[in-house]
Write a protein that binds this DNA or RNA. Sequence first.
DNA 1: TTGTACGCGTTATCAG
DNA 2: CTGATAACGCGTACAA
Lengths: 378, 378
Amino acid sequence: MPKPPTMKDVAAAAGVALKTVSRHVNGATNIDPALAARIAAAITELGYRHNLAAASIRPGRSAKVIGLVISDLANPYWSLLARSVERTLSANGYLLMTVSSEEDADRHRLLIDRLLAQRVDGLIVSPPRRDTTAWAAAAAPLLPVVAIDRPALSAPPPPAPVQDARATREDQPLSLAEPPAPSRTDDDLHTDADVDAMRRQHPPLVDTILADNAGGAQAATRELLRHGARRILFLGDSLELYTMRERHAGFLRALASAAPEGADFSVATAHTAAEAADVVTALLGTGRIDAVFAANNRASVGAVDAFTRVGARLPLIGFDDFEAATLVRPGVSVVAQDVALMGEAAAQAVLARLAGDTPPPATTTLPTRLILRGSELP
Amino acid sequence: MPKPPTMKDVAAAAGVALKTVSRHVNGATNIDPALAARIAAAITELGYRHNLAAASIRPGRSAKVIGLVISDLANPYWSLLARSVERTLSANGYLLMTVSSEEDADRHRLLIDRLLAQRVDGLIVSPPRRDTTAWAAAAAPLLPVVAIDRPALSAPPPPAPVQDARATREDQPLSLAEPPAPSRTDDDLHTDADVDAMRRQHPPLVDTILADNAGGAQAATRELLRHGARRILFLGDSLELYTMRERHAGFLRALASAAPEGADFSVATAHTAAEAADVVTALLGTGRIDAVFAANNRASVGAVDAFTRVGARLPLIGFDDFEAATLVRPGVSVVAQDVALMGEAAAQAVLARLAGDTPPPATTTLPTRLILRGSELP
DNA sequence: TTGTACGCGTTATCAG
DNA sequence: CTGATAACGCGTACAA
């Protein structure tokens, strides 16, 4: 690997000063055409390439690179988001460094450190599940930071289990990696979801792009109730995740406001589609549930898989659209987020601050859309 | 945005020389513990962060960043690959810059230029469909380059349409964005696929990681024939794409070697799942085809979608596994690539050369696996 | 319009 | 073990 030619080499070959080459490379117009031609010739001759890394250390200059921290590129939700962010940034001359935290708090911190060391111009981050907000507090003064999918909030302490007449807690249906979250009702204040809601009143630490998780879950649950569901299973990931708490809260809100007397519900946790399928398989035919709200795409896939394998189904609505949703019969109804729009909004928020805007950090909550395809019916 | 503190600031605050701070930051051991403590204190005090971009301009140093050029992050195939690459690189201290070329040759060149200007340490590239190999020739002398999914080959000229008794060409079933590729048989030499095969004999321009596209397609086609298929539809993307040519060649090879007298086939092109669904819908029930080989994941999804909508199905095998494949009945049989392994192999190839290895560029062809789930049956 | 001299934040040399 | 000094590749005052 021969070391690449520098501006100095080009200047020497073209018989001009360094500065003139610099001008040419940066597209300045006020250059003698004769010199410009000599320089251009020397550049192609030597195979010179502008060194952006070197240029970026000058004050006021930057490499035009943005960092994106998500939890898992392999999940279609995140890859769609990453694509959308990359498109918007690319159209504005920025490159994107994407890293996966895999929901690991330590790795999350490490990755952010690395990106800051790399001197990226901006950061789009999905906060980790037990967020201390330390990363945001440290990074925000240095560069534009946007939180996506979840706000930069410290995780509230786990709430105490609560029971009431209308809310019963499923015994752990299968051995799962994590105990199922306790069921709660709307009457029960001072819970994690409520803490989230309270904090949302205060100005956010950084610009934040969210979907209306609670609203979407509420609409889906209401739809299931409308079709006669009385014992709905909330099947999702750990309630340590903000989005899960929100969707859970929306679920409960629908039950509190729209459920007839005697309605009941249960909650189960599954990290993967396979775990979700196991949960549903174990419950199918027991009569303990008569409908499923799948709180993320993996849960939806698991539920459909269980239905297909067992040869029986229950009314189902999922959160997040997924490719298979239109391929099975009945089609899977979902609460769809506009992922492309979220990515674009996050990218635009970073770009706006890079362009000099300095409004106080704001939270943008994008609406979700209930797409009915038939699976909500009994 | 206050400008971040530098090593000089830290040195001043700690009352030591610049070089000592540099030593401390780079983890040198031979430092007076007292000074080291003062430096550490100053670093946390000032909030100093190592500037890797600045450090990388020294000769022999680099930012430890790799560029990845793929065609579309939104396609699960590419996002899985990107995840795998990122994992391997991340484990070795490298960051990844992922960009999508969207199969556009100009954009492809632009992106590679940009990544080279950024002085990435290595490049993992899926060559564009009409590759001139100019990018590879230019980049390969500068840094480790790996071609993935397709070799870095110039595209051969489109072959002249050929006909014979056993091969008939479907009239264009629907108005598609691109005319269907001509059908050919094994007797027909000097075709694009054959050119590909010939070039593969010669040493590749750069390290290359491929899947056994032809072998997988051949196995799938043979399986369809074994179950009685006689008029198979090859449903794929443009044959300008190397992988499509390879799969098409394998398809033809199976027909040539295993098809009984009177067997027939046809070829249709579709860029999206929707287009593929339209093609299959138009052909279903006409009797012109009695089985489908879907040459990529979008074609598979389209075929399944058509089957579901029409309420009729034909034997089907797809290329590339996809999430919905196990959720429909019958399960969709596929030729599966080990995407994770391909990504890891590509990353390891780059890392090996970065570590100093300099073997001649080699091509690694990874086996594919035929997964039978029932859809291959009549 | 072009060139000179210097600084950006870091690391390497080499003398103390 | 430490520190002054010179690069690294590039952009910008400022002078010519």
